[in-house]
Design a binder for these strands. Structure first.
Length: 579
RNA sequence: CGGCGUGUGGCUCAGCUUGGUAGAGCGUUGCGUUCGGGACGCAGAAGCCGCAGGUUCAAAUCCUGUCACGCCGACCA
C-alpha cells in the first residue's frame, strides 16, 4: 500500500471536541471519522487494526472450542418479550416498528438470539457443553457517548454464549474463558489489562469479571489491594469499616440552626465527621415511598449496591415541605415509618453519633444505634475509599485506579433458558434448564484503549500484532532516481516475503513524511534517502524509539524480517499457556 | 434527564459587547524555488455565519424559539 493512495486525511490541528489523546490522534491520523453522536466510520487504517484484533479473538475463541455464528442486528420484539427485557431495559434499547407495524429492536446484546438459535438443537444432554460466538455490530442508545471510540452507540463486539448442564461444568469453562481472555489481551499487546470482580447489572447471574485497562482517562473506578491480589470494580467492592466504640453519652436533641450539610453540623457542634450520620434519599419512581440510605458522614452511597438491595431502579429524590422527611435533618432515630431505610456498615459500632432529628433545625447527639433503635440491621451500601480495608486480606491497603472496561465475562445461570423455555433431557429422561455463561469484548473500544495507553505526543505506537502495517518505508526525495529505485526494490522485497509494508514515496518534505508516519504509528520504519545511500545504508527505527540503526541496503530486508520476528516474540513472551 | 458551554469554508479560530460589502492560519488547486521533523513566493477555488421566526432602512452581530454538538453529573453488559 502506498501512503499516496491511502484513503483518509491526516492533519495537524487537534479537533476541538476531543478530550482524550487517543480520540484526537485517531481523528488526526485518518483512522476514523465522526458520523453522528456516538457513531463513527472506520477508515482503512483503523479497519486493518480492528480486523487484526478480531482475528486474534477469533483464533482464541476457536481454540476453546467456540463456534462462530452470526445473529441478526434487527430482532423481533417477541424474542425480547420472552426474556422480559423488552420491558425491563430502558431507552438504551432501540425499538421500532416495521412496515406491518410489528415491534422490533436493534440488537444491543444477543442472549435471546443465542437461546433462540440453539434451543431446538440442544434438547439432549449429549449436545453439551458448547459455546457459540459472533463478531458483530451492536447498537446501544447510550445516554452520553464520549471519548471517541471509547464510548459509542454503534460498535463491533465479540459476544460469546456457552451452555452447560451443571454449575461445575460452567465453572470449569468459565476458568478456560478467563484464561483465553487474558491471552487475547496479551496478544493484542496490552498485558497491562487487569481482571476485576464486578457487579452483574442487568445481565443477571452471580459471578462476573471485567477486564480493565488501567488509565487515568478510564470511566470506571477500580479497587486494587497492594497486599494481596484482590481487585474489584468499585461498584462491587465490599466496604469494611472499623469504628472504635466510645462510651455512649445520653441521647440529646440539640438545636443546629441552618446546618443542612454534614460539614455545617460538624463544624457547628465541633464534632468529628467520622461520628456523623449522613442521609441520602432515593425513590424507585416519583410517587413511590422514599428509600433513605444512612452512611457515615465521610462516606458516599454506592448506588449500585443500594439498587441491588432494594431490587430495582432508584433515583435521587427531591424532598418538598409537604413530605414526611425534613431535608437536611434526616436521621434514623424517630424517622417516619412511611419510608424504607437502610443503615450502612460504616455506622456500626459508634457510640456517639450525630444525626438528624427529623425536625427542622435539630440534630441528635449521643445516638447509639444499637441502644436506641430496635433491630439494627447493617447493610453494605457505601463506597470504599482510598486506603480502605481490603475485603480479602483485611489490611488497609486499598488503592483506587481508573480503567476502561475492554471485556467482561459473566455466569448467567438459567435466567434466559428459563424465561425462554430452553430445556434438555438428561440421561434419566428428566428435563432441565441449561446453565449459561456469556463473554464479551468491544473491538473498537479495545483499539482505542490500546492507542490511549500506547502513544506519544506525535501519534499512536501500535503493538506489531495489531498494527495496520508492520513496516513503513519512507522514501525521502522520491524525485531522486537512485533513492526511489532502492526504495521501490525494498518495498517489493518485503512484500514478496509476506511482510506488510506501507510505502511513502510522495514528493513531500521530510517533516511531513515523518509526521504522517508518526500519526499512522507503524512499528518499524525504514528511511531511505540520498544522504543514507551515500553510506550505502538505510536507517531503521522503531516507532517507540527503542531502536535506531543504520543497515546496509543489501541486508535491510533480512534485518527487517528478523526485527519483525523479535517484536512478535516480545509480545508472545507475555502470553501464558492454558493450565 | 439536570447544570454549564459552543455552533462562522475540510480543520483551528477571530469578528458579536457598540448592527453597515464575511476574515486569518492550516488544508486544498496551479506554477516556481526548496528538501532529514508539518518550508517559501505568486496565483486560485471554496462560507445563504446551525435552523426558523422577530426587531430594523439594514442582522453573523440584538430578541424569541428550536436543533445539533461538547463538558460535568445521572445512567450504562
Amino acid at each position: 500500500m502506498k501512503v499516496a493512495n491511502l484513503v483518509g486525511q491526516r492533519f495537524k490541528e487537534k479537533p476541538s471536541d476531543c478530550v482524550i489523546d487517543s480520540h484526537a490522534l485517531m481523528v488526526r491520523g485518518g483512522f476514523m471519522k465522526y458520523v453522528g453522536n456516538g457513531i463513527y466510520s472506520e477508515f482503512p487504517v483503523l479497519r486493518r487494526i480492528t480486523a487484526k484484533i478480531e482475528n486474534i479473538i477469533r483464533k482464541e475463541m476457536d481454540a476453546i472450542d467456540g463456534q462462530e455464528v452470526l445473529f441478526p442486528v434487527v430482532l423481533p420484539a417477541v424474542l425480547w418479550e420472552e426474556s422480559g427485557r423488552y420491558e425491563s431495559i430502558g431507552n438504551e434499547l432501540v425499538r421500532f416498528k416495521d412496515r406491518n407495524g410489528s415491534n422490533h429492536v436493534l440488537g444491543m446484546t444477543h442472549e435471546e438470539a443465542a437461546v433462540q438459535l440453539v434451543r431446538e438443537y440442544a434438547q439432549s444432554y449429549t449436545k453439551y457443553p458448547f459455546m457459540i460466538y459472533q463478531i458483530q455490530r451492536k447498537f446501544r442508545d447510550e445516554a452520553r457517548p464520549r471519548a471517541g471510540m471509547i464510548r459509542v452507540r454503534e460498535f463491533t463486539m465479540k459476544d460469546a454464549y456457552s451452555f452447560h448442564t451443571s454449575q461445575e461444568d460452567l465453572d470449569r469453562y468459565y476458568k478456560i474463558c478467563f484464561q483465553a481472555y487474558n491471552r487475547i489481551f496479551q496478544k493484542v499487546g496490552v498485558p497491562e489489562v487487569v481482571t476485576v470482580k464486578s457487579d452483574s447489572g442487568i445481565m443477571g447471574g452471580s459471578v462476573s469479571h471485567e477486564y480493565m485497562l488501567l488509565t487515568p482517562v478510564g470511566e470506571d473506578s477500580i479497587v486494587i489491594c497492594n497486599e494481596c491480589d484482590y481487585s474489584s470494580n468499585m461498584e462491587a467492592a465490599e466496604n469494611i469499616v472499623e469504628n472504635t466504640k466510645a462510651d455512649s453519652d445520653k441521647l440529646l436533641c440539640v438545636e443546629t440552626p441552618n446546618c443542612k450539610t454534614i460539614e455545617d453540623v460538624c463544624a457547628f457542634l465541633k464534632s468529628d465527621v467520622k461520628t456523623s450520620c449522613k442521609a441520602v434519599v432515593y425513590q424507585k419512581n416519583i410517587d413511590d415511598k422514599f428509600v433513605v440510605a444512612f452512611v457515615r458522614g465521610d462516606y458516599e452511597v454506592n448506588e449500585t449496591k443500594l439498587r441491588n438491595l432494594v431490587g430495582g431502579e432508584i433515583h435521587t429524590a427531591e424532598i418538598t415541605a409537604d413530605d414526611c422527611l425534613v431535608a437536611g435533618y434526616i436521621g434514623p432515630y424517630g424517622i417516619s415509618n412511611e419510608v424504607e431505610f437502610y443503615i450502612d456498615v460504616s455506622l456500626k459500632g459508634i457510640g456517639n453519633i450525630v444525626a438528624g432529628a427529623n425536625k427542622e433545625g435539630y440534630h441528635y447527639t449521643g445516638l447509639d444505634l444499637e441502644r436506641d433503635l430496635e433491630n439494627v440491621n447493617y447493610v453494605d451500601i457505601s463506597k470504599i475509599k482510598e486506603g480502605g480495608i481490603c475485603p480479602c486480606c483485611k489490611k488497609s491497603a486499598i488503592t483506587i485506579k481508573r480503567g476502561i472496561e475492554v471485556g467482561n465475562i459473566f455466569q448467567l445461570g438459567t435466567k434466559y433458558t428459563e424465561t425462554m423455555n430452553m430445556q434438555y433431557t438428561d440421561e434419566n429422561g428428566e428435563s432441565h434448564y441449561p446453565i449459561m455463561g456469556c463473554y464479551g469484548i468491544g473491538v473498537g473500544r479495545l483499539a482505542a484503549s490500546v492507542c490511549e495507553v500506547h502513544h506519544d505526543e506525535y501519534g499512536p505506537i501500535w503493538p506489531i500484532s495489531i498494527a495496520p502495517w508492520e513496516v513503513q518505508i519512507c522514501c525521502l526525495r522520491a524525485d531522486d532516481e537512485d533513492t526511489k529505485q532502492v526504495a521501490d526494490k525494498l518495498y517489493k522485497d518485503l512484500t514478496d516475503i509476506g511482510i506488510e509494508a506501507l510505502y511513502d514515496d510522495r514528493q513531500v518534505r521530510p517533516g511531513v513524511m515523518f509526521s504522517d508516519a508518526d500519526l499512522i504509528g507503524v512499528p518499524i520504519r525504514v528511511i531511505i534517502s540520498p544522504r543514507n545511500l551515500k553510506e550505502s545504508s538505510v536507517e531503521i527505527t522503531t516507532r517507540d524509539k527503542s531502536i535506531k540503526t543504520m543497515v546496509s541496503v543489501e541486508e535491510a530486508a533480512e534485518y527487517i524480517k528478523n526485527l519483525r520476528l523479535k517484536l512478535f516474540a516480545d509480545i508472545e513472551s507475555h502470553v501464558q499457556d492454558y493450565k
